[in-house]
Structures are given as C-alpha cells and as structure tokens.
Amino acid sequence: MDRLRVIGPVAELEIFTPGTPEEALAAIRAAPEGEVAVLAGGTDLLADLEEERSRARRIVSLRRLPWRTLDWTGPSLSIGSTLPLRALELDPGVRSRLPGLYEAVHAVGSVPLRHRATLGGNLARSAPASDLIPVLLALDAEVELFAAAGVRRLSVDRFVRASRVTAIAPGELIRSIRIPEARPSAFRWQRVRLANDISQLAVAVALSPSDRRWRVAVGGIPPRAIRLAEAATALGTGAPAEAAVRRAGEIAARAVPLVADRRASEEYRRRLIGTLLARAVASALLPREGVG
C-alpha cells in the first residue's frame, strides 16, 4: 500500500455515478462551477486532474446513463455521447456508409484507449488536435444537448468555439451526435508515430449525395478545426479533375492558420495540406458497398 498513488487531495475528491441525466445535472449543479468535472471515458480527464490542469473536487461519472447508443434511421446516424469509440469503429454500417468517420475513430489512441474514450468526451474537450472534430465538420454533424428545460441542437461548427471552449451551457450535457446522411468520405493524417500520437495535420473530406457538393475540414491547427468552403467549392460537384484537386489544396494551404511546434514546422504543415487533401479525395471516391 505504500506506493499507492491517488489523484489530487484525497479527502477532497468525490465521485458520483448517477443513474439518470436529471440526477447527473443535479450532482453537477450542487458543486461550485469549476470544481466539478464530468467523466465520460476519462482518457484525458485523469491526466488533467493529476497534472492539476483541472481544479475539480467532484467527479460526475456518466457511465450509468443510457447513452451508449448507436441508431441508424434511414441514412442518418445518431451516436450516443457515452458510446465507446471502439463500438463505433466496429459497426459495419459506420465502416461502409461513413468511411471517413471510421478512419478518424480508428486513428484515435489505441484499441484499449478506444474501449473507454467517447465521442461526447472528445467534443466536450474540443482539443485543437482532435482527430474527430474535422470529420464531424465534413459530415455536417449536429450536437444534441440535454438540459432540464429540454433538448437543443446545434451544428458541431457552432458547438466548437475555440481551443477547449465550447457552446455548452451550465446545466447541459451532450446527449448524442447526429450525422444527417451517409457520405463518401475520408480522413487522412500525418504523425511522427502511427498510434497514440497527435496528428501534425489532418484533413477530412465528404461528398454529400443530396447536393453533390464536397465538404473539406482541416484539423490539428490553432485554435480549432475549421471548414474550408472555398476549397470545397474548388472541388466542384462529384468526382473532381486532378487540376481541381490541386487548386483546392492550394486554396486550403493559403486559408489555414498554421504554427510551428515540436511536432512539425509551419512549412511542413503547409505542404501536408494539399497532399492529405488529394489522398482524402481519392479515397472518398473509391467504390464502397452501401455508400450514398
């Protein structure tokens, strides 16, 4: 027992495991703001607590809430916020109908990490390096927020405000993420290490079967992943010519704010954009059973 280590001042940290969303909101409300942390998978939260980036004295765990769901309704998919990423990855429908989402989920951490990590947790955290937010942007995903007064929906684009800043209000929890339609899509990233690493840059693309237009999003940039409307327009409708792909890459490289850090130089990141965009478009156009 002498080597037992615990996070933070032991006596002060408490954990609640409510069984209903209402009880969860009550447990959150009862603690002073800034002193409560909501626990989904915990893959980031535990490090935050240990390194004292979080001042939480109360943890509210969502593991007993009935939100580990995956529901296809026609072409649209609703993903419960506390569903482990691994379940999303192993769903055959996700792999064939939303290949970009599959690729992004598969890129997160490692298999054991994905058994605990959740889409809701990734969105609530909104790290600039998130590999999931770019693909959610390219798929026009919506966040469904649960509150005592009812449910509201807003696009991921509006939900993510800045680095680790979201539009979630006090008294709200992410209940689900809705993707409106199956889309040919792809996610491409570059890293120093294949697994358990942060992408130097990441590009997600999707082609909507309803309006035949592309969506392009770039992640791994400050302060948050963004959609690139002009680059998407340059891709035209349907399968683009090689020159259009190149032009879209050039537009994207000019439009995106980039930094140099220990993972990559600014110039390297700028060059990556066109390369990853071209690879993603080519992959999205590969014939796949059941897409569109």
Binding site: I15, T43, S110, P112, L113, R116
Partner: peptide, 26 residues
C-alpha cells in the same frame, strides 16, 4: 501512466482497457 505505452493493459468485462486511465470506482 498516461495511456501511451500499453504496459498496464487489463481486460474489463473481456475488453482491453488501460488500467492507468481507469478509475477503480468506474
């Protein structure tokens, strides 16, 4: 101890999990 190496992997209800990133209460 940060989920980056896999040395602490155990099975939880049959699924591999990183025991360094899992609270015992969970």
């Amino acid at each position: 101890r940060t989920g980056g190496c896999g040395a602490c992997t155990v099975l939880v209800d049959g699924e591999s999990s990183l025991s360094c990133l899992t609270l015992t209460h969970e």
